[in-house]
C-alpha cells in the first residue's frame, strides 16, 4: 500500500540511493505543481519526503513546503543540510563535521569503501545513524565479495566495541538486520512513489533522472507512471510487491534494499535482483548474524529477537529448488 510521496524538488536535487544524478541544470518544480503534489499526498494520506536542491529556494516555496508534515533529504552541500532529517554525503570527506544526533547517507563506490574503511568506520561514533549506499554494487566481482566481507568484519568490530560501551549507533549494513523480523526494503512502486518537477510520477527518482537516451536493453530507462493531471497509473503494480518477487519473498536478508531500479537494469525485471545484489545483501546478513552473536557474548542484547540462523548460500537463486 502506498505510504510515501517523494517529491524531487529540482532536477539537481541530490541522489540519496544507488542511482546517479548527472543533472547539472536547475529545473525547479513549479509552485503550482508542488501545491498539487502536496494536495495529492494529503488526499492519498501519504507521508511526504522532499529532496531539496543545493541552492536557496524562493521564499514562497519554503512556505508551501512547510504547509504539511514532511521529512527533508538534502545533500551535505545544501543550505538545508542543517535542517534536513537525512543528510547525503556524495563521496567520502574525512573532514566533514558530523552531528552526533544526525542521520546520514554516505554514497560511495566500492573502491572508496574498501580503501577508506578505517576512516569511514570512525563515523559510527559521530552520528546516530549511517546508511552506506554502494553506488556500483552491480559491478562487484568475486574478489570484491571477499573484500567486502572483510570490510563488514571491520565495521562489525567497531560496532561491537561501541555497543559494549553502551552506545547504540546504527549502520544500515549491519544493525538493521539485527532489529528486523521481516523484509524492510525500499519498496519503490509499492510503498512509495516519486513526483518529479515535470509533474509526472515515477517509481523512484532514478526513473526520472535517467538520461533521455539511456536504455539498458528493453527500452528507455526514463519511464513515468502517470501524472498529477491524469492520476497515478502503475502498470503491472503487483511486480513491485514482495509477494511477486520470486527470490525475495523467500529471503531473510531483511535489510536488503531490493532496489527495483537496479533490478530493472541488471535483470530486466523489477522483481528480480541480480546475483551481485543478492550476494552483497547476504554478506551483510551473515555479518549481522555474527555481530549479534558477538554482542550477546557480553550480556543480554535484544532478548526478544531470535538468533539469525546459519545458512549455506549467498545467493538464494542457487538454492531455489529447496523451496
Amino acid at each position: 500500500m502506498l505510504q510515501y510521496l517523494i517529491i524531487q524538488l529540482d532536477d539537481t536535487s541530490t541522489s540519496y540511493c544507488h542511482y546517479y544524478n548527472g543533472k547539472r541544470n536547475r529545473n525547479l518544480i513549479s509552485i503550482d505543481t508542488l501545491k498539487s503534489g502536496i494536495m495529492f499526498g494529503m488526499k492519498e494520506n501519504l507521508m511526504i519526503q522532499y529532496i531539496l536542491p543545493d541552492y536557496e529556494l524562493p521564499d514562497e516555496y519554503y512556505e508551501v513546503l512547510e504547509s504539511i508534515d514532511h521529512s527533508k533529504i538534502a545533500s551535505s552541500g545544501s543550505p538545508y543540510a542543517s535542517v534536513a532529517d537525512v543528510v547525503v554525503l556524495n563521496g567520502w570527506n574525512k573532514d566533514y563535521a558530523f552531528d552526533i544526533e544526525g542521520v546520514y547517507v554516505l554514497r560511495v563506490d566500492k573502491r572508496t569503501l574498501f580503501e577508506k574503511t578505517s576512516e569511514i568506520l570512525k563515523v559510527l561514533k559521530e552520528c546516530a545513524r549511517l546508511n552506506i549506499v554502494i553506488t556500483d554494487v552491480e559491478k562487484f566481482s568475486d574478489a570484491d565479495f571477499e573484500t567486502y566481507k572483510s570490510v563488514l568484519d571491520s565495521f562489525s568490530k567497531e560496532l561491537e566495541a561501541l555497543y559494549v560501551a553502551g552506545k547504540t549507533p546504527q549502520l544500515n549494513l549491519l544493525t538493521d538486520r539485527m532489529m528486523l523480523d521481516g523484509m524492510n526494503n525500499c519498496n519503490a512502486g509499492s510503498d512509495s512513489i516519486t513526483l518529479a518537477p515535470d509533474g509526472r510520477f515515477y517509481v523512484c527518482p532514478a526513473f526520472y533522472l535517467a538520461p533521455d537516451d539511456e536504455d539498458y536493453g528493453l527500452g528507455k530507462s526514463k519511464v513515468s507512471v502517470g501524472s498529477l493531471a491524469s492520476g497515478l497509473d502503475i502498470k503491472n503494480p503487483q511486480l513491485y510487491r514482495l509477494s511477486h518477487a520470486p527470490l525475495c519473498r523467500n529471503c531473510d536478508a531483511y535489510q536488503c534494499k531490493r532496489c527495483v531500479w537496479l533490478n530493472r537494469k541488471t535483470t530486466y525485471e523489477v522483481n528480480t535482483p541480480s546475483h551481485e545484489q543478492c550476494v552483497v545483501a547476504h554478506l551483510e546478513r551473515n555479518a549481522s548474524r555474527a555481530l549479534l552473536m558477538d554482542i550477546r557474548k557480553h550480556g543480554t542484547f535484544l532478548p526478544e529477537k531470535e538468533d539469525i540462523k546459519e545458512i549455506s548460500y549467498l545467493d538464494p537463486f542457487d538454492v531455489r529448488k529447496e523451496w
Binding site: P246, S274, H275, F317, R320
Partner: peptide, 15 residues
C-alpha cells in the same frame, strides 16, 4: 549474462 536469465528460471505459473 546469467543475471538476464534469472527472471526466466524463477518464473512460475502463479507469478
Amino acid at each position: 549474462d546469467l543475471n538476464k536469465v534469472r527472471p526466466f528460471i524463477v518464473l512460475d505459473r502463479i507469478l
